[in-house]
């Protein structure tokens, strides 16, 4: 086994950049969509602050079950199938079906429902007494969400976020199929297909280090944010 760093470093460097681009961009969309979906899942549920949007209990229940269904569908498909099935949608949104940008679409679609469920779990942990207290002070529903639910659940949401990032890194290993490159792609093409153990071992070490770092960062931030 030969670690030929002169050729490996540029290859791996590019792969790391690609992984970070894919994961970073997808993460933006995951937060942008996953957080509101998670909030809506809790808020439209029985006893939630938006249980009766526009005074209609039926609308709230319909919204809740529709969202829940979509989220479950997104969660039930293996990423590799999701990615292939989404190719037409990807072409529509990204203008192309190959490359880093194209990978962001299926990655986000996979991570949004995952993160949304984690946000939901985090929000459900917030003591209902706090919501009552806010109501007794005359808070609107939006204020309750913005100033009670989300800040109180923030440590748990941050932990959920680091879990989601790790999932994204995991999914992104398969993005090589649509030509997005990334660390996983190197491991597959060089390490597996060309039996190059140097690449295999290096990519594994890289992935482990990255995942550890993200998890530690997430736990550390959650602890910093929590004043319980």
């Amino acid at each position: 086994m030969i670690f030929d760093w002169n050729t490996m470093v540029p290859v791996l460097g590019l792969a790391i950049i690609q992984t970070f681009q894919m994961v970073g961009l997808s993460l933006v969309f995951t937060i942008l969509f996953g957080l509101p979906v998670g909030i809506l899942l809790v808020a439209t549920d029985r006893g939630g602050v938006f249980e009766t949007p526009y005074g209609s209990k039926r609308l709230g229940a319909a919204l809740h079950s529709t969202l829940g269904f979509i989220v479950n569908v997104g969660r039930s498909l293996p990423f590799i199938i999701l990615m292939v099935a989404l190719i037409p949608l990807t072409r529509l949104i990204a203008g192309t079906s190959i490359g880093v940008v194209a990978a962001v679409v299926p990655l986000s679609v996979a991570a949004i429902p995952f993160f949304a469920r984690l946000v939901e779990i985090a929000l459900r942990e917030v003591d209902s007494g706090l919501i009552e207290a806010a109501k007794s002070l005359g808070a609107t529903r939006a204020t309750i969400i913005r100033k009670v639910l989300v800040p109180e659940a923030l440590p748990a949401i941050v932990l959920g976020l680091s879990t989601s990032v790790i999932s994204l890194i995991n999914y992104s290993a398969m993005a090589g199929i649509i030509g997005a490159g990334g660390i996983g792609d190197i491991a597959f093409r060089f390490g597996y297909q060309r039996f190059d153990d140097a690449y295999m071992i290096t990519t594994i070490v890289l992935l482990v280090v990255i995942v550890q770092a993200i998890q530690s960062l997430g736990s550390w931030s959650a602890k910093r944010l929590s004043h319980r």
């Binding site: 003591d127 007494g129 706090l130 009552e132 207290a133 007794s136 100033k147 800040p151 109180e152 944010l225």
Partner: peptide
Amino acid sequence: GMIFQHFNLLSS
């Protein structure tokens, strides 16, 4: 105003 048995203060 209202006060509660378990105080219901925002921990954040």
